[in-house]
Amino acid sequence: MQQFTYERATSPSDALHKIAAAKGGRFIAGGTNLLDLMKLRIETPGHLVDINGIGLDAIESTADGGLRIGALVRNADLAAHPWIRRDYPVLSLALLSGASGQLRNRATTGGNLLQRTRCPYFYDANQPCNKRLPGSGCGAVGGYSRQLAVIGGSAQCIATHPSDMAVALRALDAQIETMRPDGTTRRVAIDEFYLAPGRTPQQETVLEEGELIAWVVLGAPPGGRHVYRKLRDRASYAFALVSVAAIIEDSGRLRVALGGVAHKPWASQAPFEAGDTPAAIAGRLLQGAEPSPGNAFKIELVERTLRSILAR
């Protein structure tokens, strides 16, 4: 790996200060994604600011009856938290379907949101990839695309975002609260947090240089039945071919987000109504999809997964 310098931050403002001082620096949280990518030289930061000691590791209730989750809360702790299990079980289920116990012990809420695609061409520095090396082309278009996006992509990139947690957060309409080096903070809805690849697939989120994810904010508990279904080639420890986070409210209204189909958790703005059939829901969600021959099955799989969820 490329040589880098490293320092530990002691507070959010210290982290922001340190990252601003170092050009080309990166935060490191659990390191479960960043270090792998650095070893493969896909990420080559010259400086790392370790944020594990800055706090932001608690889950707190908010004035409007919701919760805010610190960016450094570990995936394992988040999944096991009694409030989450009681009021937002879809989040717990999604987290537990991802990675492994060891990884979840280490991985953080902020890091999970920012984990990078598992596109195999992105992972092989010899191959063209616009995300890794802008302008080099896209190996996946016309190549091995089974895992990749069926909607929202571009001719330049069809990568999927691999997070399970983010899919549940999308179904919950979570907000992401950040801090910028200049001291300002902002809130972004998760749906607006990830950018479509377009011609600049290297730009994945709205975060600016040196901006820190501080909290993930959830509204009041939505109630209803929560489901997270993840379809994959083996029973655990695999990224989703397709996943569905669903919240079926007592009224029958349905909130759905899909994983494994796009560069971000895929959902529609308006919720679905009680009478909507799985085919209608899938049709509306995936309208305009442009799958490749290697992943066209995902469209049918989404519909079938919805049918399976609604059949119960």
């Binding site: 190996g139 080639d233 083996r234 029973a235 655990s236 695999a238």
Partner: peptide, 29 residues
């Protein structure tokens, strides 16, 4: 059920050359 090296016929390689993408059974299977 799962093991298969994916050939990219344009580039001439097995694309899924790590254990995240070449899957073998785990205990849960």
């Amino acid at each position: 059920l799962m093991e298969s090296l994916a050939v990219d016929p344009r580039l001439g390689l097995f694309v899924n050359h790590d254990l995240a993408s070449y899957e073998v059974p785990v205990h849960a299977d």
